[in-house]
Amino acid sequence: MNSEKKLKKPIASFILLTNLIFLPLFCLIGIISMLGLPAWVIDVMFCLSAWSSTFAFAVLFKKIYPGQSFIQFVKDKFNNKLIFSVILTAIMIQASIFLMILFLVSKNSEINVIFTISSWGMLVYFFFKNLLSGPLGEELGWRGFAQMELQKKHSPLKASIIIGFWWGMWHLPIWFTTGLVGIDLIKYILFFMIAIMSTKIVMTAFYNLNQNLIVPIIIHQFFNFFIGLINGNLLDLIMYNAILYLVVAVLLIVINPKNVLYGKEEINVIHGEIDCH
């Protein structure tokens, strides 16, 4: 019999420890930047800081799930067969948002170069840097654990709003590196929170449809990747993303009013097929 005591507030403990790990790593990035070290060193540190939620979850795992294997838990999150239609729909939605933002920026901006990337080599590097410094490091803790754990007590939508808020607040130190001040900074924070909470709702809907962590990883990756490709005003970019992802989130809620984002209890994924009760 396992005598190890189980954490009474696992999600709160996870959020707290995630921030305690992230803050010193983020401060270290600032120190490295001031010392004028190579850009790749800063990129590596960004990647490490993005994994703070995974580090926190790994540290707390035995107290959250006594007697269980962390490695097996991770494997189980990728165990379900991927449903092509779910992934394709999510990517098409995000690609459509990207194209709409691209159109808005090109129409309303006076800049000559619309993309931030000028070569295929840079594009590949940017893609994998984003993958390592965000989706791969964040999704196990925030989605694989916190979202699923909260869904045991609340609807997927309510759980998404709660986790989305705290996930957004975890980014707080980054807000003050944008160079924005005053009302522009307030607008940025507002739009950022709307964008990230709306994206969280989108992630939840598609994750609950497939129950494989690759799904939110893909959505997270393309959110970061697409916004980083466009050479536009930062405030405008986050505003466009906030509005468009909010529209998608509301539509997903409207078409799934009874189950409120395809709750785990209402969906059975069997051999790649979805059985909705």
Rank of each mutant, 00 (worst) to 15 (best):
V105R: 10
A50F: 07
N233C: 06
K200D: 14
W51D: 05
I97F: 00
F55H: 11
N130T: 11
A12K: 13
W142G: 04
Q94R: 02
M197R: 06
S106M: 08
I11V: 14
W120Q: 12
L251R: 04
D275P: 00
I174G: 02
L140I: 13
E273W: 14
N2K: 07
V44D: 07
N208P: 15
F192Q: 09
N224M: 04
S118F: 10
D43C: 02
V181G: 13
N259D: 09
E138R: 11
F73Q: 12
P10M: 05
V105Q: 07
I174V: 14
K107M: 04
L172A: 15
Q94P: 00
P257L: 11
P24I: 14
I29Q: 13
V269S: 12
K264P: 00
P216R: 09
Q211P: 00
M203G: 02
F61E: 03
K63L: 09
V44M: 12
S69R: 11
S133G: 02
F206G: 01
I183K: 11
I253R: 05
G144N: 07
K158W: 06
L244Y: 01
C27Q: 08
G30W: 09
G164S: 10
I93M: 10
S33I: 11
L35N: 08
V250I: 15
K258P: 07
T54A: 05
F223L: 13
F127C: 02
I227Y: 07
T18I: 14
I83Y: 09
F127H: 02
T89S: 11
S69C: 07
N212A: 03
M34W: 07
N210G: 01
L172S: 13
N210R: 06
S49Q: 12
V250S: 04
V269R: 13
F98G: 02
F127P: 01
S119H: 07
I11K: 12
N268K: 06
N233D: 15
E266V: 05
I114C: 00
F26Q: 08
N224T: 15
M122T: 12
K8S: 15
K158V: 01
A242N: 00
I83L: 02
I189N: 02
M34V: 08
T177I: 10
V254I: 15
N241K: 08
G134C: 10
G232W: 10
G141H: 09
I230V: 01
T204P: 06
A95Y: 05
F115W: 11
L261K: 11
P38F: 03
F57Q: 12
I218N: 00
G228P: 00
I201C: 11
S109R: 13
I201S: 05
I42S: 15
I117E: 12
W166I: 13
W40M: 07
G232I: 05
S13G: 08
G67Y: 06
I117H: 06
N108D: 02
L150T: 14
I267R: 10
G121S: 08
G272W: 12
N224G: 03
R143F: 01
I270T: 14
I162H: 01
G30A: 03
W175L: 13
D43M: 08
S69N: 04
G67V: 05
W120F: 08
I186Q: 04
V113M: 08
V250R: 06
N210K: 14
N108I: 01
